[in-house]
């Protein structure tokens, strides 16, 4: 069910590991599938598992263990806000509250227009830049004070 482009990307990941260790590429392959599809439906997990020659349950264990995989659909923009202690001390929780109010949703919810999903994150290793948030697992935003948040939401259509 994955596009040729995704398969090519997965092949590049497989090449990083010894020939008999294709399973090593499962994390990357699931991330690639999620990037293509927006989330990880079970069909995608299964096709990744089949492609790597591992049991679907083995791939599902991985997909459900790491918290950047989305096993349910998310909005076009997934905002993951770190609220862990160092961020909290510098406004991480306040930023999350601000977003909740502004978007009218709670954690793990999606705006009715399908634009935003809000997630509570754990430490992203960027505590010096607090408050930090991650957009779609890819783009980390630093020092997210109200003005910066407003600007970000404006940019993300």
């Amino acid at each position: 069910m994955l596009t040729t482009e995704s398969i090519q990307k997965i092949d590049r990941e497989i090449a990083k590991y010894p020939a008999d260790q294709k399973q090593s590429a499962v994390m990357a392959a699931l991330a690639i599938a999620q990037e293509e599809l927006g989330w990880l439906p079970s069909e995608a997990i299964e096709s990744v598992a089949d492609y790597l020659g591992i049991p679907p349950m083995a791939a599902y264990e991985v997909a459900s263990f790491y918290n950047m995989y989305d096993l349910k659909p998310v909005g076009r923009h997934k905002l993951t806000v770190c609220t862990n202690l160092p961020c909290m001390l510098s406004g991480g929780v306040d930023a999350a509250e601000y977003l909740k109010k502004k978007l009218g949703i709670g954690f793990n919810e999606t705006t009715p227009d399908g634009r935003f999903t809000l997630k509570e994150g754990e430490c992203m290793g960027a505590c010096g830049d607090a408050p930090v948030m991650l957009v779609n697992n890819r783009h980390m935003c630093a020092s997210m004070l109200p003005e910066q948040i407003d600007k970000l939401l404006e940019e993300l259509k």
Binding site: S42, I45, E46, P55, P56, M57, A58, Y60, E61, S64, F65
Partner: peptide, 19 residues
Amino acid sequence: VMELGMANRNVHSEIQTFV
């Protein structure tokens, strides 16, 4: 054959089959 696995993590870990 790995039919059962332990999905999720922490106290939410659950033994289950694939979907």
